[in-house]
Structures are given as structure tokens and as C-alpha cells.
Design a protein around this nucleic acid. Sequence first.
DNA 1: TCAAAAGTGTTGCCGATACACCCATGG
DNA 2: CCATGGGTGTATCGGCAACACTTTTGA
Lengths: 229, 229
Amino acid sequence: MAESRTALAVSTVIFALRPHPTTRRLALWVPLVRRIRAPHQGRWALPGGPLAPDEGLAASAGRNLRETTGLTPQYLEQLYAFGGLDRGPTAAERTVSIVYWALVRPEEAEAGAAGVNVQWFVADELPELAFDHSLIVEYALWRLRNKVEYSRITAAFLGETFTLAELRGVHEAVLQRTLDPANFRRQMESSGHLVATEAFRTGGRHRPARLFRYDTSVHLADNGPLTGR
Amino acid sequence: MAESRTALAVSTVIFALRPHPTTRRLALWVPLVRRIRAPHQGRWALPGGPLAPDEGLAASAGRNLRETTGLTPQYLEQLYAFGGLDRGPTAAERTVSIVYWALVRPEEAEAGAAGVNVQWFVADELPELAFDHSLIVEYALWRLRNKVEYSRITAAFLGETFTLAELRGVHEAVLQRTLDPANFRRQMESSGHLVATEAFRTGGRHRPARLFRYDTSVHLADNGPLTGR
DNA sequence: TCAAAAGTGTTGCCGATACACCCATGG
DNA sequence: CCATGGGTGTATCGGCAACACTTTTGA
């Protein structure tokens, strides 16, 4: 049996919401990094790197995210640890990856920070990625779409205050289907996470929409005993 | 800043169902290993060990499980990767643990295989464990109790065929509450996972109960794109 | 014939959906 | 005053919990 080693790395699936290039409707985007060495040279891969010895797992994911995109994660959660024997640069070196997923607000900077080695793609229209990264993104998408249904992570895509139409737009973009405005409103209001403000969004050719904020005393996602870690 | 290294280990939270020592009702048990060296010397800890270089993560968990308990896992799923800086034997060496959780059938052997260093405990009445293992078990329990509600993992605690009362007993033990037999029956039947056999369990002072089997074409748990990995 | 568990039927409640309808604003 | 989305009201449907009731066995 050949000698083999195991390396430990942290990668991150980073989601942002921006209009789709052709349909102009909101869609999920993911930044990828082009591999500059074999194996899979030239292919796109998830941003990531080795875990620094004096750094926590989530901290490593957050640092990597900032270095790749210049953005601050609004939400960060561990996705899965991948450690199959088929992973890694050579057959003799296998890599165990702790993968996180994150939600960011694209804001202004974004485009500038992405160099030639970093490029954003529509998450549902990715090319074939390096290693098992295609499967990883697929799994991250599945988790995100699941979680939208029962938590308030979508707050991470919005500013401090927002209208119900804006919030519904985020949900529709993530779930890729339209939602009934009346029922969506009741669902959100009955969740207890929303707090109505006295401010309104004006400017449309219609009745102004009330602005809401999220109750900050409730966590974005309930991960049981791990909540807040 | 001090020099520091990172070790990689795999641990497993192993659940079995056996009667509670005082109430005699079914309860969840967990095997623990006594630590024979500092830090936390003498404390109980999750079974685990370093990842072999030529071994997958789940394979490592399965091997460790067999070595500690002599049992074969009926169900095995990754729980979480823990990598805080406070973990590990010394301040200079931090350990990243990929933790799995497993369901086993105690069967006959069980008690014999457990040596002086391995002891089974009622999962809800554990002593203070080494490192962050108390939190890890708590999280595993939370995941198990969640998953019982929407998947068929409880199959892992039963034999090939079983009565609805036996299945309900497992659910009641895990969830720690009684369930209405009539509604439980309908729930299970409408799930589509159950297949009725023509055999019956006789011997009680009552009407014989039909034996069921699980539809093997359906996976125990739906983990989206990762199902079956 | 009786106790006990298997198994079936029925009812009422609650949440989600569909959709009709009024409100307030900009043009 | 009209088009547009904001916001409310309401009927219906389906799933679930509660619980009454019938069935079949062992003793």
C-alpha cells in the first residue's frame, strides 16, 4: 500500500443575491476561484485554504471569505466535512475539507474586489467544478432552500429594515417560485420574528409599504444546542 | 505567539435502546471511554481516534464503533466538525474532531464486549464529560429526536420485521412521551415506507399484531444530494 | 367471559391556500 | 381618476389530535 498523508482545509460556499444576467430576476450567485495547478488545472473551485493552526474553523471560513470577495459574511454555518479517499491534489495526499456556507450582501464593492482568479456565477448554472465541489454546491443550495422555509436566514440578504415585498422577493428568488403576498405576510407576522417600524418606503406609484426589522433577540437559525456557536 | 499544531480525529456518539435501570422503560444509552491520561484524566469521553490516512471519514467512525462495542452500526451519519481552539490535549496541540452519530442494536454480545474502559450510560443522565463532549452528545440527541419525526431511522433499532406497537415503543422512548396508537398507525401507514407482511406476532393475551417491514427501496434518511454517501 | 391490546371510524380544530376586496399613493 | 402594489377579510381544504368503538386473542 502506498504512503499517504492527510491535509486539512476549510472551504466556503458563498451566496449572494443579484439579478440574473438574462432574465433580470433576482438569483443566487456564487464566487469561484480558478485553479492554477494540477489536478483540475483551469477548473473553477470553491474558495478555501488550509486551516491556520491558531484559528477556529468558522474564523478560517470568515477570513477566507473576506480575502476572496472583500465582503463580510452576514450568516455563516458549517455545511459538512468531506473526506473521501478520492479527494486531494495527488493520490498520495488526501484532503479533508470542512465546508461552510455563507450569505453576503453584495453592496457596492463586490465587482471591484473580484480579480481575474475570482469570478461570480449563477449558482444554478455552474460549469463542472474541480474535485467534488459540484456536489458540495448542490448540497449547500439544498440546505439553503430548506432553511428558508423555517428560519429567518433571509435577513442576511437584506438591510436593517425592509418591506414585506422585499423580503418576499428574497424568498421567491431562493425558492424559485412566486408566493402569495397575502399569505406570505401572515406567515411572517405570525412567526414572531418581525417587528413593525413606524417608517414607510415611499416613491412607488402606489401605497407606501411599511418597513419591518427583525427581532434581534431571536437567533437567525435554530441549531439546537449549537445555536450561536 | 506559541507554536501550535492541529490533529485530526474522528469520534462517534453511539446510541442503543435498552431498559432504564430504575424505571425499566426503554431509554437511550451511550457507550463512553474512560480517559487514562491528562488532560481530563479519569473523565469519560466519546470513543474515537485519529483518522487513518487510507480510510474515509465514515469508515473510520464505523471501525471505531466496532472496536469499542463489538457492534455493527445500523445507521451512521455525520454530526458536526468541532475545531475550537480550546480543544486538544495541550494548549499547543488543538484537535479537530469530525463527529459521527450512530444507531446500533444491542443484541446479545454487547455487555461482554465492553471492557473496564468502556461503559454504557443512560444518554440523558451523563456525568460531566471530557473536553466539549457533553455538548456534542446533547447536540446528537437533539438531531436524533428531530430526525425521528420525519424520517425512518428508528428502523435501525428494530429487526427485519416488527409490530406497530414495537415501532411506537421506539418512538416513545426516543421522544420521551406517549403516542396515540391509532394516530401513530395512520401516520406510519400514510408515510409509504411500511410494507405489511402476512406474518403476525402471537403470544400476548390479546389479538395478534401484524408484522411490518420497511420498504428497502427508500433510504433511511433524506440528506438531499448527500443521500447514500 | 373478561382483560388487554390490535385495529377502525368519526369528529372537531387549526393552519395553509386561494382569491375577493378595499386602501393609498404617483402620475 | 386610474393603474399599481399594499394590506385585510374570508371560504375551503386537508392533516392531525382526541377519543369512541369494534375485533381477536390468551387465560
